[in-house]
């Protein structure tokens, strides 16, 4: 990463997604998506199931190939990077997956240490201390030697978070932090995320469908529906938005579709 650090200061938007179009097979999932994420903010990408929010996240992580459009991370277009450059780029990115994605054959400590062992030549003692520091951050000190199978859902998410910040990344991605957690644990996790932003100055992108959690932590919110961005703005902006689909999502109202008898009949009788 030769020139990223110098460029970084000039870049207000550390993540910039431009005209992203993606396909899954023949189906178009994302239609012309544009997002800017500012340095040091918590950006929440919100949307119902099937809105394409997880797909968008996976594109930002470079796990999928985009059909067209560009994704700039810290000033570099990751759709154009070689595999090796991408691995370099990923050292600036921490990711906590929905299910934790912890390696079941490794202890909590081994899981967290893995990136350090892979990418640094620090000695064991330093690595140990760094591991404890991160566990301390997520309030899991003393759980080093447990296996993932011995942890509760909330603990798994926190370990995953500890692992994603072990390399002190500048960008943190979190997929569904509150999915499957009770409200109290979920609130704790939200606190933790805010603390990370304030203490470490990380830029954080969170994908979620939980409204309460989103409103609590977001600096800005992007609402995604059926592969299209409906609105990007502050919490107030989103709450006051008069777009019907946004309001439906906010009020947890099921979609009331305009019934078009012609189209309905066609759907029922089409061949194949």
């Amino acid at each position: 990463m030769p020139d990223v650090s110098t460029q970084d200061k000039d870049i207000e938007h550390v993540i910039r997604v431009e005209n992203l179009v993606t396909h899954f097979g023949d189906r178009e999932i994302l239609h012309n998506v544009n997002i800017n994420v500012r340095k040091g903010e918590v950006m929440v990408i919100m949307g119902g199931s099937g809105s394409g929010k997880t797909t968008l996240l996976r594109h930002m992580l470079g796990l999928h190939q985009a059909s067209s459009g560009s994704i700039y991370m810290l000033g570099q277009d990751i759709t154009q990077l070689s595999k090796k450059q991408m691995y370099e780029m990923r050292r600036n990115m921490g990711v906590a997956f929905q299910g934790g994605a912890l390696f079941s054959s490794m202890t909590v400590a081994e899981n967290i240490q893995l990136p350090l062992y892979e990418h640094t030549s620090l000695d064991d003692m330093t690595i140990k201390i760094m591991t404890r520091m991160k566990l301390e951050v997520v309030n899991l000190a003393g759980f080093e030697d447990l296996m993932p199978s011995e942890l509760s859902g909330g603990m798994i998410k926190r370990v995953a978070l500890a692992r994603s910040i072990i390399m002190d990344p500048r960008l943190l991605f979190f997929d569904e932090p509150s999915a499957g957690l009770d409200p109290v644990v979920s609130a704790e996790l939200d606190e933790l995320i805010l603390r990370l932003r304030d203490a470490m100055g990380m830029t954080i992108v969170i994908v979620t469908h939980e409204l309460d959690s989103a409103f609590r932590i977001a600096d800005r919110i992007t609402v995604l529906d059926q592969g299209q961005i409906l609105i990007t703005g502050s919490v107030e902006d989103v709450k006051n938005c008069d777009n019907e689909r946004v309001q439906n999502l906010l009020n947890r109202k099921p979609k009331d579709e305009d019934i078009d008898p012609e189209a309905y009949l066609q759907r029922l009788t089409r061949e194949g």
């Binding site: 796990l63 370099e88 990923r90 990711v95 997956f97 929905q98 994605a101 912890l102 990136p115 892979e118």
Partner: peptide, 12 residues
């Protein structure tokens, strides 16, 4: 369980 994606994202 996205463990392979996680590896990829850790740059491994």
């Amino acid at each position: 369980s996205e463990q392979i994606d996680a590896l990829e994202c850790m740059g491994i």
